[in-house]
């Protein structure tokens, strides 16, 4: 029972991280109609920046804030130099060009930080277990991820749903001509949204960094998960991304935690431990396939075009 609570929290935490990644992706996709494979690279860069800046400044908080700023700037620079020329191109062009960027970022990281990967140690105050309900302890750091991500999600929701800029973003997602007609500086809006998406990806990466090792290619697997999420949720829909992210995070985590034991009932122990992670990963893609077949526009289509 305790394990179930703990694993559910892990699932929630992973789902929220996925949401941060997917939110930026779905905004960029919804508004600019732009498929950005390099989003996963920004996630990776966030983690590398964090590991570096925390080591430099000797302060976890300061280092993380610096890393966040650096990812934001990197995102804006990337948009300004390369990606804005790809708006309006067909999706294949965007996929290929940003695929090129993934290759670039992976080797750039290898050149700068070396192939070995880094670790981001936690400060002592974040490693203590917290008692969440009597008898159930949960690592403070994972708990803080949940809190931060929920706060960011709430903030994002308020920005998108309640502010003028959010109104423009939503308008852009459903009707691109309209924001042009309103006389808004679209280029600036796009750059801003892209920067925001990059910062969110960076935040996800740097929060994940202390849990996993910081390594090359860390953004690729999770990027595909983020794509699965926005496709399930409906492209352009923040709410859809949130629901789908939690869902996928839960399936992935709980599947990994409990499938081995379940499989052991029917398979040999060794076979079960190989098959279980594969099966839980597969479940997610299976889910996406089912959603697409049944509802090709996703569960919460942002706008019917």
């Amino acid at each position: 029972m305790l394990v179930l609570v703990e694993q559910s929290l892990n699932g929630l935490q992973f789902g929220l991280l996925l949401f941060l990644l997917a939110a930026g992706l779905t905004l960029v996709f919804g508004i600019m109609d732009f498929v950005n494979l390099a989003h996963g690279s920004l996630y990776m860069m966030g983690a590398y920046f964090a590991a570096t800046f925390v080591a430099w400044t000797n302060s976890f908080i300061l280092g993380i804030l610096l890393a966040l700023g650096a990812t934001l700037l990197l995102g804006i620079a990337l948009e300004f130099i390369a990606l804005r020329h790809l708006y309006g191109r067909d999706h294949l062009d965007q996929v290929l060009a940003t695929f090129g960027l993934i290759l670039f970022f992976n080797d750039a990281v290898r050149l700068i930080w070396g192939p070995a990967g880094l670790s981001l140690p936690l400060p002592a105050w974040l490693t203590v277990p917290v008692q969440i309900v009597p008898g159930v302890f949960y690592p403070a750091y994972r708990l803080s991820i949940i809190v931060v991500a929920l706060a960011v999600a709430a903030l994002l929701y308020i920005v998108v749903m309640r502010t003028r800029i959010g109104m423009l973003i939503r308008a852009g997602a459903s009707n691109r001509e309209m924001i042009g007609a309103l006389g808004i500086n679209i280029k600036l809006l796009f750059t801003l949204v892209f920067g925001l998406g990059a910062a969110l990806a960076g935040l996800a990466g740097l929060m994940q960094a202390p849990i996993l090792t910081v390594q090359i290619g860390m953004g690729e697997n999770i990027l595909i998960l983020a794509f699965v999420i926005i496709v399930i949720g409906g492209i352009g829909s923040i709410r859809g991304a949130f629901m789908a992210a939690i869902f996928v995070g839960m399936i992935d985590t709980l599947g990994r935690a409990f499938l081995p034991d379940l499989l052991r009932m029917v398979l040999s122990s060794a076979a079960a431990s190989t098959a279980a992670p594969a099966l839980s990963s597969m479940l997610i893609y299976l889910l996406m396939a089912i959603v697409l077949v049944v509802r090709p526009e996703g569960l919460f289509p942002a706008a019917k075009r």
């Binding site: 062009d93 290929l96 090129g100 290759l103 670039f104 080797d107």
Partner: peptide, 14 residues
């Protein structure tokens, strides 16, 4: 670090 060249090249070709 060949991908440092290949990646941007791909972008340019597109």
């Amino acid at each position: 670090y060949w991908a440092l060249i290949m990646g941007p090249l791909l972008l340019l070709i597109v």
